[in-house]
Simulated assay, not measured.
Amino acid sequence: MVIQNKKIAIVGGGPGGLTLARLLQLKNAEVKVYERDENKDVRVQGATLDLHEESGLEALRRAGLMDEFKANFRPNAGKLKVLDKNLNIYLDEHSSGDSHSEDRPEIDRTPLRKILLESLQPETVVWDSQFVSMEKQNEGWLLHFKNGNSYYADLVIAADGANSKIRSYLTDIKPIYSGITMVEGNIYHAQSNTPKLWELVNVGKIFTLDEEKSLLFSTKEDGTLTFYTGCKTDENWVQNSGIDFKNKNQVFDWFKKEFGSWDKNWQELFESDEISIIPRPQYHYPLDQNWETLSNLTLLGDAAHRMPPYAGEGVNMAMQDAFELAESLTRSECKDVKSAILNYEQKMLKRASEITKITLENTEMLHSENAIEVLLRMFQGE
């Protein structure tokens, strides 16, 4: 095994990084995960996750965690409604009994993280470790963190997300703006704070598509309603809009203008103060991105191939990266670490290019003039 007696640092404790740590520990590798969260109990934001058979679920199978997954997944969370701005329903999988996502079971981020964390050896995750910089030392890297601590690793794996600070040590390829900016909101205790919309979403998902905009909903088991607006904007709209996104009332004023012709029921999103809001301009990397492989550094997940969420591939790509990288690093066919990383990166970049292309097509489709019509045809296999 080419990583025998080597210290491995995974920077980022999301699903991809934790999955990789689990798979490497099953092969007795020496691995640490450096995570910026203060501890394991920090609230995990974002929508529920749908895991795909060939990627996310395959990673859990290889990690020996399917029983834990089956005990925590949410059977009806993937059931979808498709609506227009006036609340007209074009698809309702709750009443039809069908589901386009039956082979993509849903799980909340928090229980998935708990499953992965509890599968690791004690002290694997080094909490409160926000990456600042690193420098070459011996054959590897000396990593520096905001808390003042520094650690050496022979191999660094960047799993630090879409705004990765480590990526620049490997490549200077910049992301490309997709033309869409999302505003994410999380409404806590939504059943009491947004009762009409909570009932409408029915513990599942909603795609509302109209006027070349999107308004997407999902629920979490803890009673949180997560929503995402999607609008065509300039790349610097967040900075130039003058909106303080920590101020709910300013965001609400924007929403009432941007979605002014939409049914007033959508405005229930902003009636409660139990809400967190964050703008998210959507970027992707070039379909033909490539870089020179190093022997002591590689990327996985959004750090390698960030893309908009409109194909539901983000976490699945990261978890597939994890099992493919673990396989390359631990199989006997590779003569050294660089060869193992090259084998992984070649397959990962090809797969990322294909999925990014599909994602960009979906992004354009969901924000097109005939979005609902095209989406329904897609569900019908046309």
Rank of each mutant, 00 (worst) to 15 (best):
L215R: 00
E292W: 04
K264M: 10
V251H: 04
L216H: 01
P175D: 07
E68K: 13
I243R: 04
D263T: 03
I8L: 08
L300F: 06
G242W: 07
L349V: 11
E221G: 12
L83C: 04
P279T: 10
R377H: 14
P279V: 06
K165V: 06
K40H: 11
K335D: 12
K7M: 10
D128S: 14
D321C: 09
K32S: 13
L87R: 01
T219I: 05
S339P: 02
R43D: 11
P286I: 08
E373K: 08
G381V: 06
A311I: 10
E106Q: 12
Q267T: 15
L325M: 07
D103V: 13
K6P: 00
N202S: 14
A318D: 02
G242S: 05
L360Y: 09
Q250I: 06
K357Y: 14
G260C: 01
I180E: 00
L216A: 00
G260L: 01
H52Y: 10
K79G: 01
A71K: 12
L200S: 01
T293P: 08
D67L: 07
L83F: 01
L117F: 07
V33I: 09
M182G: 09
Y34A: 07
I275R: 04
V132Q: 14
A9V: 07
I3S: 00
L197A: 05
G14H: 11
M319G: 09
F270R: 01
K114Q: 14
R306A: 15
V126C: 10
S99G: 12
Y169K: 12
L170T: 04
R280Q: 09
V201N: 05
Y344N: 06
N193H: 09
D160L: 08
E369C: 04
K357W: 11
P122F: 01
P105V: 02
N236V: 06
E58Y: 10
D108L: 00
T224N: 06
V125G: 02
H100V: 15
P15M: 05
L294C: 13
Y344T: 07
K85P: 00
S261C: 01
S119E: 04
K79Q: 07
Q137Y: 10
N193M: 02
I372M: 01
D160R: 12
D321S: 09
E361C: 06
G185A: 05
Q191H: 11
V126L: 10
E345C: 03
G16N: 03
A9H: 05
H189C: 08
T298D: 08
S332L: 15
S295Y: 00
L26F: 07
H100Q: 15
M134C: 08
I10M: 04
E313D: 13
K32P: 03
N236T: 10
M365R: 14
Q267V: 13
S241P: 06
